[in-house]
Simulated scan of single mutants.
Amino acid sequence: MGRREDLLDQVTDHVFEHGLIGLTLRPVAAAIGTSDRMLIYHFGNRDELVAAVVTRAEDRAVAAVDALPGAAGVRAGVNALWAALQRDPLHRCTDIYVQAAATGLIGQERFATIVREANERWVRALGDYLVRCGASPEAVGRIVRLVDSSLYGFHLDLSTDRPDELAEGVDDLAAAAQAIANGWDLAALGHAKGATR
C-alpha cells in the first residue's frame, strides 16, 4: 500500500470517529501524526481529501454488502440489510455519505463525478445482494431504487424515531420490495385501491 492510500485509510478512520462536517487539514493531520503539507501533497486540497474519504467509505460499504449472505427472500434480505446498516462499518459509512450531502459538496463538480461513480458501485452491490436474496435480474433495478433511497431516509430517522417503529416501517418497505420481486405492479395496485374508495 502506498503512502497516499495509507494516509487515506487513516483519515477515513478519523472521520468515522469524529465526523466529516468541519473537517480541516491541520487538525486531521495532527490527529493522524502527519502534516497538513503532506495531505496537500497527496490530495491537493480539503475538498479532494473529502472526496477521497467519501469514496473510501463507499468502498468499505460495498465490501460489507458484498460480504452479506443471501437471505431467504427479498423481504428477509431488506430487513437483514437494515440490521447491517445499523452496525459498523455500514452505519458509519452511511453517516459519512449523509454528512457529505449536508456539506453541499455532492452536487459540485469534481466531487459530483466521484460520488456518482461511488454510488454506481453501491447500487451494483445492492443489486447483487438482492439477487442473492431471490430478486430477478429484471426486477432488481426497480427494487434497488426503492430500497436504497428509503433506507437512507430511515437512517436519518434513527436519531429521532423509536427503533421498533422504524423496524416496522422497514418491514413495510421490505414487503413492497418482495411484492415487486414477485412481479406485482404496485402502481396498479395503488390505482385499484384508490378506485374502490
Rank of each mutant, 00 (worst) to 15 (best):
Q99I: 08
L130M: 14
H18F: 14
Y129K: 05
H91Y: 12
W122M: 14
R132W: 09
E5A: 10
V15I: 08
A175Y: 05
V62F: 09
S136T: 15
A76V: 07
G33L: 04
R56T: 01
V147W: 08
D9V: 05
Y152H: 12
L90I: 04
A71G: 12
A100E: 00
D9A: 13
L158P: 08
R3S: 01
R46L: 04
A139G: 11
D128W: 13
D6N: 08
A64K: 13
H18D: 06
D161L: 12
H18M: 12
A139S: 15
R121I: 02
R92K: 12
G2A: 03
R121M: 07
N79H: 12
Y97G: 05
E5W: 03
L105A: 02
R60Q: 14
H91K: 15
V65T: 08
Y152T: 04
K193R: 14
L151Y: 04
A139M: 11
E120F: 13
A63C: 11
L8V: 01
G73H: 05
L85M: 15
D59L: 08
V144E: 05
L146M: 14
R75A: 11
W184N: 03
C93F: 09
M38G: 02
R145C: 08
D47I: 01
G153I: 05
L186Y: 03
E165I: 03
I114G: 04
Y97W: 14
R145N: 12
H42W: 15
A177C: 06
T196C: 04
Q10M: 09
R3E: 02
E138D: 15
P27H: 00
H191A: 13
D6R: 15
A179K: 07
V15G: 04
M1C: 00
V15R: 03
A125T: 02
A135V: 04
P69L: 10
L25G: 01
A188V: 10
T12E: 01
Q108T: 14
V15M: 03
P69T: 10
L49C: 03
Q108N: 13
I21Q: 06
D95I: 06
A187Y: 07
